[in-house]
Simulated scan of single mutants.
Amino acid sequence: MSCQSHYLTLVVLRYKALLHHIIKKGLRGVKFEVTHRANVITKYRIANLTTQPTKKLMFPVDENATMKSVIEYFQEMYGFTIQHTHLLCLQVGNQKKASYLHMEACKIVEGQRNTKRLNEKQITALLKVTCQRPRDRENDNLKTVQHNAYDQDPYAKKFCINIIKKLASVEARILPAPCLKYHENGKEKDCLPQVGQWNMMNKKVINGMGEQMG
């Protein structure tokens, strides 16, 4: 094997290991239910992700350490034929006594809350949606109402729900900003905030105090 081929192999292996780590981290703790048992719905939490594909997974089935493949076990016990044997298995239980469940026989439980930290790309996408200018938000809402066509929805009609295609108008008033009072010794004793903001230049607080922590 040439040095170039050896280097390429190492790069591929490291990429696979990194990808496996990312997927495992994202799936850990997620609830799922199995679908290969007739009339029996059992729920588990994902503890790990196997490093080997299903076709290579073996486990002991008795005290004599008789080994059996996951593919054979699913076929003999449940009559379930695994089609995509190259996929990894979900692992439940602890590392010493793990159970392997193939992804074809698993379904993620709906309605789970994601408590994991968002990455930078997800945070940027979230801020882009939530931090909109009022006019842009108004246009998006109007487009959504028009696209969903609530006036043609059979369920809305059945419950006599009518949704107008324009924003509701409410009476409101804008209160003036309060005048802020600072120390008499400062260059600026009073301050009137502009557009909800102000700075502390040329100002002194009336009663400054120090606070000890701990």
Rank of each mutant, 00 (worst) to 15 (best):
Y44R: 01
M213E: 14
H183F: 05
P154Q: 02
K68L: 10
H86N: 12
V11A: 12
E120T: 11
Q83L: 14
C160L: 14
N94G: 05
D136F: 00
G186E: 02
K68N: 03
G93W: 13
D151G: 00
K24W: 00
P154D: 00
H21W: 11
P134R: 06
V12H: 15
H102K: 05
K143G: 04
D62A: 01
Y78S: 07
L126I: 08
D153V: 00
P60R: 02
L142K: 13
W198S: 10
I46D: 04
T115V: 14
V70C: 04
C89Y: 07
E110C: 04
L8E: 12
E104F: 04
Y15A: 15
F59I: 04
E110V: 11
L57D: 03
E120S: 10
V195F: 14
T130C: 13
K158M: 15
A125K: 12
T85S: 08
L167C: 15
P178D: 05
A105D: 08
A38V: 05
Q83F: 00
Q75Y: 09
Q132H: 04
M213G: 01
H102R: 01
W198G: 04
N148G: 00
G214V: 12
H183L: 03
V145Y: 00
N141Q: 11
H147R: 13
K96D: 11
G214E: 06
K68E: 08
A125W: 05
L118T: 07
Y155Q: 14
K68Y: 00
N48D: 15
K107S: 11
G111Q: 03
Q122C: 07
K204M: 14
L180V: 07
I41L: 09
M209V: 11
K25R: 09
T35E: 06
E138M: 15
N207S: 14
G208Y: 06
A168S: 01
K25A: 13
K56I: 05
R133M: 13
Y78Q: 03
R28P: 02
G214Y: 08
K116H: 10
T85K: 07
S169P: 00
T115F: 10
K181F: 07
A125R: 10
E138Y: 15
V195G: 00
K31R: 14
K56L: 11
V61R: 01
A177Y: 04
T50G: 07
D62E: 03
Y150Q: 01
Y155F: 10
V170W: 03
W198N: 09
I161S: 01
K24H: 06
N185Y: 08
Q212E: 11
K166M: 12
L167Y: 12
H6I: 13
L142R: 08
